[in-house]
Amino acid sequence: MEEESIRKIRSRSERILLIISHAVLIFMSFTAIVPFLLLISSSLTSEAELVRTGYSFWPKEWSIDAYRYVFVTNWKNIGRSYLITMMNTVIGTTLSLFITSLLGYVLSRRDYNKRAILSFFVFFTMLFNGGLVPTYISYTRIWHIKNTFAAYILPGMLMNAFNVMLMKSYFTMNIHPALIEAAKIDGASEGTIYRKIVMPLSLPILATIGLMIGINFWNDWQNPLYYITKQNMWSLQSLLNRILSSIQTLSQMADKMGGMTANMPSTSARMAIAVIGVLPILVLYPFFQKYFVKGISLGGVKE
């Protein structure tokens, strides 16, 4: 809370720990940022230099050819895929947070009579998976989601047992049953309790899991790979990955295909595409960060 930052560092142990913390975190930030810088600099390097002398932080031959290629050939596609990806992410994350937290909350309630069965029901899905073919057949034959917007959100993305368990764990630890009892005595319905009491207390976990879900939606390229065949419906990451894995596939094919890869986007273009894919998240993330730092607001329960 606010007081912490103003509170003076009193003990020696705190000081030592602070120094260690800064040191470790600076090192980690460094190792996290450096490859990223390499990514950016390689996207601005000329193709010839990349192939001949490799990646470097300060290339001898600067060139924006990669970005020019990406935007000139694909600007229509990129613009559209940005939009599609943003829509998926926003809608998908909202829906996902909603049903995940609902289920996690219900499972955390110790007075819920079906708790054990439901926990097992949820958890079992983490262990056994029908596999790609049955999932595909189920989604396309029964629910007809192929080439629809739902294909981005539904298969495997909307909710998974891992997040539900995390939510459950958090609620179990932090939402004291007495709080709920008090609300019930006051006559609140389950829905009201959930909305007015549980949600405000859970901002850290909602932000945490919401972030991860959001990143997953943003980065997902597997659903479009199987379910979206219309090119004008591709998301940003699927566009990127199509290009990247096409190169791999073609190079695995027989000798005839060798010549084809000469026409594929160069290494620097691939890096440029990657940078374009990551940029929006980087820009937006600091705005959402405050929810992590916020602790539990007023209304806690004294043990």
Partner: peptide
């Protein structure tokens, strides 16, 4: 119960996404 209702969306999704395809094992 109300709690059952709240858990329902998640349950339905798990059935659609996980349990039905599981039959394909």
């Amino acid at each position: 119960t109300a709690l059952d209702l709240m858990a329902l969306p998640g349950i339905i999704y798990l059935i659609i996404n996980n349990y039905i395809p599981m039959g394909g094992l």
